[in-house]
Simulated scan of single mutants.
Amino acid sequence: MRIEVLVDVKTTLGEGPVWDVQDQRLYWIDSFGCRVFRCTADGREIRAWDVPEKIGSMALRRGCGAVVSLATGFHFLDFETGDTTLIVNPEPDKPNNRLNDGKVDQRGRFIAGSMDTQEAGPNGSLYRLDPDLSLHRLDDGIIVSNGPCWSPDGKTFYFSDTWSDEIWAYDYDLETGNVANRRTFTKLGMSPGCATDGSTVDAEGFVWNAQCYVGKLCRYAPDGSLDRVIEMPVKKVTSVSFGGPNLDILFVTSMARPPLPRFPGDGVQRGSLFAIHDLGIQGLPEPRFGG
């Protein structure tokens, strides 16, 4: 196994790596820097787009451009012009919330949740944006929405509230996009201050989770048991995703500056985009939003 700094752009809050199988490019975001980045698998040809608000996540569209979860709602992002267009604001009555992590299911629906910007109260919800641009609330009572991803067959949905010390599993109906039977998939319990952050599922059905503030990547078997722990060179790791020509490189984002003063600082590699090679594991292609 080899860990390298792929791109050092000092993202204030790096998040949401997404590998584009079609064009062989990696996208990731700076949530607080209000930017979307793109590069090749080896860190070349870096490109960036500014967005007008804090950004929680992005997904590529089947046509062109992306759908992004900005602070005030779901938007389209046009890569040609850099313009963003509002689709819907799910929480106009909650000015202290913003949208956060999100991913697309096998049928092209974008699932993303909101969060309390002070990370204090259960004021957030989980939403599904369908290809027809209709919006549906799937769950609520969430402090910080994080880590949405699916089992390889698409029938189990994984999700977490960052400060719950758990990753949850739901039954997922691929036909309707509805969730049911929320239960504990695994408990973290690793060390004080550990927070569950972005997740992905590999081709073997194992869940990878970035555990922020303790600098660990954890791989969990489908039964929730801990399979592997990778110690990262920075503490504030934020999200993970497989990519590269063979989908066998694990890309890892990190933050340069914590969002609240109670969180720890980090070393000179803070805010870097990392690539982990030679794991002997492949990921799954990320679906595109159908709208």
Rank of each mutant, 00 (worst) to 15 (best):
C194L: 11
F263P: 06
G43E: 06
V5L: 01
R257S: 13
N146P: 10
P192S: 12
K216F: 11
T200G: 04
Q118E: 14
A71D: 14
G82N: 10
N123Q: 09
G244F: 14
G271P: 07
Y170F: 15
P52G: 10
M232A: 02
T117W: 07
V234M: 05
F74A: 05
P245S: 11
R62D: 13
P264W: 02
P222I: 05
M255G: 15
G280H: 04
L226W: 01
S69F: 12
G113H: 02
D101R: 06
G267N: 11
A48R: 11
I167H: 02
S31F: 03
T85P: 03
F79M: 13
N89T: 02
L126Y: 09
L284G: 07
P192Q: 09
H277S: 04
E53M: 03
E119V: 00
N97C: 00
V67M: 09
D227A: 15
V5G: 01
I3P: 00
D8P: 06
P122L: 06
F32D: 09
P95G: 03
D42A: 07
R219C: 05
V67S: 12
Q24D: 11
P259H: 13
K187Y: 06
D173S: 12
G189E: 05
C34Y: 00
G205K: 00
R270V: 04
C194W: 13
I230Q: 13
G121R: 15
T11S: 15
V104S: 05
Y170P: 03
S114A: 00
P264M: 11
T84L: 09
D50I: 02
D132C: 06
D83M: 11
G177N: 03
I29W: 09
G102I: 08
N100I: 01
L77P: 08
G243H: 00
I29S: 01
A112I: 01
P152F: 12
D105L: 05
D227M: 01
D101A: 08
W163F: 13
V5M: 05
T176K: 10
R128E: 14
F274S: 08
D266A: 03
N181V: 01
T162V: 05
N96P: 05
P222K: 08
L135D: 06
L279R: 07
V201R: 12
E204D: 15
L284S: 11
P52L: 14
K94L: 12
F289H: 00
T81Q: 14
R262T: 09
E15C: 09
L135W: 04
V268Y: 08
L86M: 12
T84N: 10
L135G: 06
P152S: 07
P131C: 00
V144C: 05
G113Q: 06
A71H: 15
D42F: 05
T40V: 02
M255T: 04
A180G: 09
